[in-house]
Amino acid sequence: MLQPQSTALLSYQDVSIEMGGTVLFAPLSFEVHQAELVVLSAPAGGGKSSALRASIGAVQLASGRVMCLGHNLAKLRPKELLSLRTQIGYVPATGGLLSNLSLYDNLTLLLRYPGDLSRDEIDRRAEQACEDLGLEHLRGRSTSDADQQDLHLVAIARAWLTRPPLLILDDPDLQLDDESTRELWARLTALRQRHDVAMLVGTSRPEMALKHGGQHLSLCSAEDP
């Protein structure tokens, strides 16, 4: 278990989640600090995604407290929660891209949404994010035609576009072969080292992530002694 520190970007304190009357995992406590990589692993159905969703206040906690960027998520109103989510990069397992937009429009949606940036500035930031993640030729490409690896990368680039201090990735290597997973982790590591961004990654295959120097947390079943 990680020692709690006051400067944590994200902190879980005895967090447990209940679904359909079943507690998904034993109370979970950890912290994520700047430039740190924390890998949360569990077998499929072990509550990994729910645990990660707790970091953005998207699930009801059965017990405990989650502090994100200094805010207690349980005390935030829905509007404040939405605003906080724009300051964190959360990438769900499905990517969460809109199929009716092109890849480029999906990528820039978060920057276009507040409506306070010029088109040139949006293009510049999008180019930079693409460069950071090694993405090319997104303009004009439809989301429904893109392969799984590109979808994952665009979803990560979309979350990275606003330069959040913390990236939360749910199963980023889902449906990727070994070669693509290696490539993805190399890019994520480069991003973390170059920009000091903290990462919390949920995966059922932690070996590859741990090769890149992450700290490993394994979710235990609530029934385990």
Partner: peptide, 25 residues
């Protein structure tokens, strides 16, 4: 059909997680 597909494909959830209000958008 569009909204139903978005709902099934968890795209609406994705918007919400990214901090975009799906109702407004």
């Amino acid at each position: 059909v569009e909204m139903g597909n978005m709902s099934v494909g968890k795209e609406i959830e994705g918007l919400e997680f990214a901090g975009i209000d799906p109702f407004e958008y």
